[in-house]
């Protein structure tokens, strides 16, 4: 059976590398430096903090955040109060959740400013 195991993504994430957080904040859609690329791969492979997705509200203009279920067939959770008009903003929002899920460290407010 062919399966992708989300738990196998194991590139170590150093909570002190705030320079990489800042790099992502500045350019959420990349291109990324090699270290940041590997962290992003881990986040997107493993989905730690949640397998988030976007659902179009207006095609090509506005998207809503959604969360895929951990068990097949369970409902997709949607967040009607979390909408984005730029895909980069959505990436940054999810990056912050995952950074905290992996490192246990919340991204400080001063870093959390609009890209």
């Amino acid at each position: 059976m062919l399966q992708t195991d989300p738990k196998t993504a194991h590139f170590p994430v150093d909570p002190n590398r705030l320079d990489l957080v800042e790099e992502f904040r500045r350019a959420p859609k990349g291109p990324y430096s090699p270290d940041l690329q590997k962290i992003v791969h881990r986040m997107r492979w493993g989905g730690e903090g949640g397998r988030f997705v976007l659902i179009p509200v207006e095609p090509g203009k506005k998207w809503m955040l959604g969360l895929l279920p951990s068990r097949r067939g369970d409902a997709v959770k949607t967040f009607s109060d979390k909408t984005f008009t730029r895909l980069a903003d959505a990436e940054w929002a999810v990056f912050k959740i995952r950074w905290e899920a992996i490192t246990g460290v919340r991204i400080a407010e001063e870093t959390d400013q609009k890209p």
Binding site: R44, R51, V53, P56, W63, L87
Partner: peptide, 16 residues
């Protein structure tokens, strides 16, 4: 939805 590799394949959030 069921398989977990599509976000890393797209190197970005999936739009469903």
């Amino acid at each position: 939805l069921d398989q977990t590799h599509f976000e890393v394949m797209a190197d970005g959030l999936m739009i469903i």
